[in-house]
Design a protein around this nucleic acid. Structure first.
Lengths: 224, 224
DNA sequence: CAAATAGTGTCTTTTAGACAGTATCGC
DNA sequence: GCGATACTGTCTAAAAGACACTATTTG
């Protein structure tokens, strides 16, 4: 073969960074770690020999944040030549979402305000976190609580609070209930935060919401 | 610093592949090229020293398909270890959309059927093309003909045909007109294909469609 | 004239949005 | 009882879907 061999091509280092989103105090938050260069950053690592991106992402979360068994979505490759002063590094941004009870108590969480982290992170990690929030909103608009942020047995109110945190805006009580109830099955039990006890439901696994649901949740914001 | 240097990490080859979509004969099509390994593939190339992904994508289109001045969107990284038998290669899939008159006459086009190419492509390129179609649909649901597939001066019918090609389904005449007309300005002229001449319009640049528009266009298909 | 398409009007159905009213708890 | 929340029902307004009717061209 008269073509170059693969090894003749220059090859960049490839990093993986993961924006782990969760809900604490009814607010969407992103998990960050102290970076050895000083400052806050998303947990990340370099890709190892013949390692798959999802593997590297899982390893980064295990080593840097003490998390395991996390599901990811790949978001975007950040490839600015000057994004890392140490050299030519591509970073593949990932997104994950976990219920608060799966996050270690000592983890650093930065609140999401207006779709972006409230603090400055290193590198282009603010951008990765923003994309992660958009991806989460998009996912939640199509499937009912796909990351199970609300938990298994819930009231409609609890579920709505999760959606309000994800979309960063108040949702209407009645409309939300109408959208959601067809995908819930009552357990017969009732639970209670305050006031009249609410019916407890279990979500129908992987419920697909109508296309209008996303429009309703993100109304007033034609962007994304 | 007691850490490894960047060059100590193993590094994969990085390829870039681009799914160029266009509309020919009222059907969405994807541009492919003959691959030297035999078979059809998306135009692609390997990333060069300190080259940016968009640069490599532009170069691939120029060298392999004779296209220039094309706007891309990055889609996804394909990282299966066995996706290229020549070695460890990550491929960053990209998407672009161009009006038919910007595509060379001798280009190979494969029709898109049910959101995927009608023929088998090499590697995981069918998957890249599928993602490209989804991205195009999503983009067209938010902005009015953002890739200008319809052309500058158009009738409502021509614009609808473009949308029907993008979504692969018939759209309703009246509803489509209602969604679209607020974002069109009449040129005063009329043109005609057949029958009564239609009013010619110019699109308001970068018109943002209401969130419900996407729901309407993709009705009946809650997936994506 | 017929055939074909453009454009307008309107009716129905659906549904988001809003609100009122009743129910059931803790205190 | 009071405060708070859960649920149900209903009204309105807006928008999608559907259809009819008129208008204007080609052949």
């Amino acid at each position: 073969m008269q073509h170059k061999k693969l090894t003749d091509y220059p090859r960049p280092s490839v990093a993986v960074d993961v924006a782990v989103l969760t809900i604490r105090d009814d607010v969407l938050q992103v998990l960050v770690v102290e970076h050895r260069l000083g400052g806050l950053a998303l947990p990340g690592t370099f890709l190892r020999e013949k390692e798959v991106l999802a593997g590297a992402a899982a390893r980064a979360l295990r080593e840097k944040a003490g998390l395991s068994d996390v599901a990811f979505t790949q978001l975007h490759v950040f490839d600015a030549l000057d994004r890392d002063e140490r050299g030519w590094v591509l970073s593949v941004g990932h997104s994950a979402a976990l219920a608060a009870n799966r996050i270690p108590a000592d983890a650093l969480l930065i609140p999401i305000v207006d779709g972006a982290p409230a603090e400055r992170l290193l590198f282009d990690h603010n951008g990765i976190a923003r994309l992660a929030v958009e991806a989460l909103q998009s996912h939640y608009g199509r499937i009912l609580d796909p990351a199970n942020l609300a938990g298994d047995v819930i009231t409609v109110r609890q579920l709505r609070r999760v959606y309000e945190a994800v979309y960063g805006r108040a949702l209407m009580k009645d409309t939300f209930r109408r959208i959601v109830t067809p995908h819930l099955t009552s357990t017969g039990e009732t639970g209670n935060d305050f006031g009249r006890p609410a019916e407890l439901f279990r979500k129908t696994a992987g419920s697909v919401l109508p296309p209008s649901a996303w429009a309703t949740f993100s109304a007033g914001r034609p962007s994304l």
